[in-house]
Amino acid sequence: MNKEQNQQCKYIIHSYATAAAAGNCVPVPGLGIATDVATMTLMCMQLSAVFGSNINDDVAKGLAIVALKQTTLKQPIKVITKELSKLAPFLGQLVAPAISVSMLETAGWNLANELHRKSLKRK
């Protein structure tokens, strides 16, 4: 990944992770997962454009779900904590967004690296 692509990915990933954090402030268990999937889908479409690809919504959603699933399997305690923290008033609005940012950052960079590898194979 060249420096320009890295900068674009950084901006995209940070922006969408922040958006997901905002959606995870709502103290409703389960809503955070839906927010994360929707945010990752949009992030995936943006990241693919960085590497000269154009994917549709269905493919982006599939990639987003796979990326979140891999992140969840690596960090199951974080996911459980994120959703259960929403049951505690005020604490949930602090913990859930922080965990969501961490998860989306990790999943976003994993996805960016995978899209980069695939773009190299196409060339």
Rank of each mutant, 00 (worst) to 15 (best):
residue 10 K to P: 00
residue 10 K to N: 07
residue 11 Y to E: 14
residue 12 I to S: 00
residue 12 I to T: 01
residue 13 I to Q: 01
residue 13 I to P: 00
residue 13 I to A: 00
residue 14 H to Q: 13
residue 14 H to V: 14
residue 14 H to E: 15
residue 14 H to Y: 10
residue 15 S to W: 07
residue 16 Y to Q: 01
residue 16 Y to F: 14
residue 17 A to G: 02
residue 17 A to L: 00
residue 18 T to V: 15
residue 18 T to R: 04
residue 18 T to K: 05
residue 19 A to T: 04
residue 20 A to C: 06
residue 20 A to I: 04
residue 21 A to F: 04
residue 21 A to R: 01
residue 22 A to K: 10
residue 22 A to H: 08
residue 27 P to L: 15
residue 27 P to V: 13
residue 28 V to C: 11
residue 28 V to Y: 12
residue 28 V to S: 08
residue 28 V to L: 15
residue 29 P to L: 10
residue 29 P to G: 10
residue 29 P to W: 13
residue 29 P to Y: 09
residue 30 G to V: 12
residue 31 L to R: 02
residue 31 L to P: 01
residue 31 L to M: 12
residue 32 G to P: 03
residue 32 G to D: 09
residue 33 I to Y: 09
residue 33 I to T: 15
residue 33 I to C: 10
residue 34 A to V: 15
residue 34 A to S: 14
residue 34 A to C: 11
residue 36 D to Y: 04
residue 37 V to T: 06
residue 37 V to F: 08
residue 37 V to C: 00
residue 38 A to K: 00
residue 39 T to G: 00
residue 39 T to E: 00
residue 39 T to S: 02
residue 39 T to C: 02
residue 40 M to G: 02
residue 40 M to T: 05
residue 41 T to C: 03
residue 43 M to E: 07
residue 46 Q to C: 12
residue 47 L to V: 12
residue 47 L to D: 04
residue 48 S to M: 11
residue 48 S to N: 12
residue 48 S to H: 12
residue 49 A to Y: 08
residue 49 A to M: 15
residue 51 F to A: 03
residue 51 F to K: 05
residue 52 G to Q: 09
residue 52 G to K: 06
residue 53 S to A: 14
residue 53 S to F: 11
residue 53 S to E: 11
residue 53 S to L: 10
residue 54 N to C: 14
residue 54 N to H: 12
residue 54 N to D: 12
residue 54 N to F: 14
residue 55 I to D: 05
residue 55 I to G: 01
residue 56 N to T: 11
residue 56 N to K: 06
residue 57 D to T: 14
residue 57 D to C: 09
residue 59 V to Y: 08
residue 59 V to S: 14
residue 60 A to Y: 02
residue 60 A to K: 01
residue 61 K to S: 12
residue 61 K to T: 10
residue 63 L to E: 07
residue 63 L to S: 06
residue 64 A to N: 03
residue 65 I to C: 08
residue 67 A to P: 04
residue 67 A to M: 04
residue 68 L to A: 00
residue 69 K to M: 10
residue 69 K to L: 14
residue 69 K to N: 07
residue 70 Q to A: 08
residue 70 Q to N: 14
residue 70 Q to D: 12
residue 71 T to W: 06
residue 71 T to L: 07
residue 72 T to E: 09
